[in-house]
Design a protein around this nucleic acid. Structure first.
Length: 331
DNA sequence: GCTTTATGGAGAT
DNA sequence: TCTCCCTAAAGCC
C-alpha cells in the first residue's frame, strides 16, 4: 500500500479540494452503492489520516473510512488545488512504479498538466493518481465529469474536482464511535500524535514484547503507517537484525527508530517518495536515484551487494511478507 | 494474451 | 500459518 506518507498526502488533497464542498457520490462499480447513496448530496466537513487509514467526515456525523490496502488508489481530476506542502519538486505526486520503488520526479514537458506548486496553492487542470501504481497524467480532454475507467468503487464529485477510489481493502461508513474505536486501535502516528508521547508509547510496547522487531514495525497497533519498504529501510538504518526480540533492543535504539520514522515520514509526505537514503553521500545518492529499481538501502535488493559492506542482501519471508536485510551490517 | 507481482490486513485454523 | 480479497501494470510467451 501506500505507506503512511501517501495517506497523509491524499488527506491533504481532500482537505484542499473536497472538504467544505457538497459532493455527488456514486459507486460506478456498484460495490459501495448503499454507502455512496448515504453520502450523496452531503457536504464533507473534515478529513483525518491516521497511519494507513483515511477518514472523511460528512454532515450528520457520518464518517467514511478508507484503507487502500496494497492496490488501492485515488485518482483526482479536474481543477485541482495543489497543496504546496505536498507538491513534489517537479509536479507529480505520490507516484511510484509497480516494482515497489519510487519513481523519480517526472517533469511534464508540456507544462500543461504540471501540478508544480511553489508558494501559494493554485489550481491546475489535470489528473493525478495518488497511490502506488504508475500512471501518467492523463489528458482528460474537456470531458466533465471524466469518463469512468476500470473498477471505480466510489466517485466523489464536487463542482470542480473528481476523486475516484479503486481497489481499496476497506471502504465503509462509520459512526463517530466506530471511527474513534478504529483510531484507538492504531499505534502512534508521528503526524497525529505528539512526537514525544508517540515515542513513549512506541518504546514502551516494543520494549516488553518478545516479538521480533521486524514484525513489530509492521504491526499497526504498535506504530502506524510503516509498511514493508519503510520497515526494511528503518531496520537497516538502525543496523538492527530484524529477528531481534523487541524487548532485547536497547532503549536508545528503539527510540532512535521512532525518531528516524518521524524524519522519514516527514520527507515522504513532502516529496511523495520513500526517500530513505538521505544520508548517502551526494555522488552515491545521484547514482542510486538514477535507477528506478534500486533506490533503497536494502528494499528489493535481494542478492545485490550491500551499499555499505558488499555482502549480498538477504531476502526471507517473515510472516508471509518479504523481508530484505544485510546479515553483516544488521546484527 | 496469460502470468506474476505488489508498499496490506482480516479471518479461519 | 494459511487463505482470501482487492486491481492494474509489468513481464513473458
Amino acid at each position: 500500500m501506500p505507506e503512511g506518507h501517501s495517506v497523509h498526502r491524499i488527506a491533504r488533497q481532500f482537505d484542499r479540494n473536497v472538504v467544505g464542498h457538497r459532493v455527488a457520490a456514486s459507486s460506478p462499480q456498484g460495490r459501495f452503492a448503499e454507502g455512496a447513496a448515504v453520502i450523496d448530496g452531503r457536504t464533507a466537513t473534515q478529513v483525518r489520516a491516521v497511519g494507513k487509514q483515511m477518514f472523511l467526515e460528512f454532515d450528520d456525523d457520518i464518517w467514511l473510512r478508507v484503507h487502500l490496502g496494497m492496490y488501492g488508489a485515488w485518482d483526482f481530476a479536474g481543477e485541482i488545488i495543489v497543496d504546496p506542502t505536498i507538491a513534489s519538486a517537479n509536479g507529480r505526486m505520490g507516484q511510484t512504479n509497480q516494482r515497489g520503488t519510487d519513481l523519480p520526479p517526472v517533469f511534464d514537458a508540456a507544462g500543461e498538466n504540471s501540478l508544480t506548486s511553489i508558494g501559494a496553492p493554485r489550481k491546475a487542470r489535470g489528473h493525478v493518481r495518488m497511490s502506488e501504481q504508475t500512471r501518467g497524467l492523463a489528458d482528460d480532454g474537456e470531458q466533465w465529469p471524466p469518463p469512468i475507467v476500470g473498477q471505480v468503487r466510489l466517485r466523489l464529485l464536487t463542482e470542480a474536482t473528481s476523486a475516484d477510489l479503486r481497489g481499496p481493502t476497506a471502504c465503509q461508513l462509520q459512526t463517530p464511535e466506530e471511527m474513534a474505536a478504529t483510531v484507538a486501535s492504531l499505534g502512534p502516528d508521528p503526524l497525529v500524535d505528539d512526537a514525544a508521547a508517540g515515542e513513549e508509547r512506541f518504546a514502551a510496547v516494543v520494549r516488553r514484547k518478545p516479538t521480533p522487531i521486524g514484525l513489530l514495525l509492521m504491526d499497526q497497533s504498535v506504530v502506524s503507517g510503516i509498511g514493508n519498504v519503510y520497515r526494511a529501510e528503518l531496520l537497516f538504518r538502525a543496523r538492527l537484525d530484524p529477528h531481534t526480540p523487541g524487548r532485547d533492543v536497547p532503549d536508545e535504539v528503539v527510540r532512535g527508530i521512532w525518531r528516524d520514522w518521524v524524519r522519514l515520514l516527514a520527507i515522504g509526505v513532502e516529496t511523495g517518495q520513500m526517500m530513505t537514503m538521505d544520508d548517502l553521500d551526494p555522488d552515491a545518492y545521484r547514482r542510486a536515484m538514477a535507477s528506478r529499481d534500486d533506490r533503497h538501502w536494502v528494499y528489493h535488493r535481494a542478492g545485490l551487494p550491500c551499499r555499505v559492506c558488499g555482502t549480498a542482501i538477504v531476502l526471507e519471508e517473515m510472516a508471509a511478507r518479504k523481508l530484505y536485510w544485510c546479515p553483516n551490517c544488521q546484527r
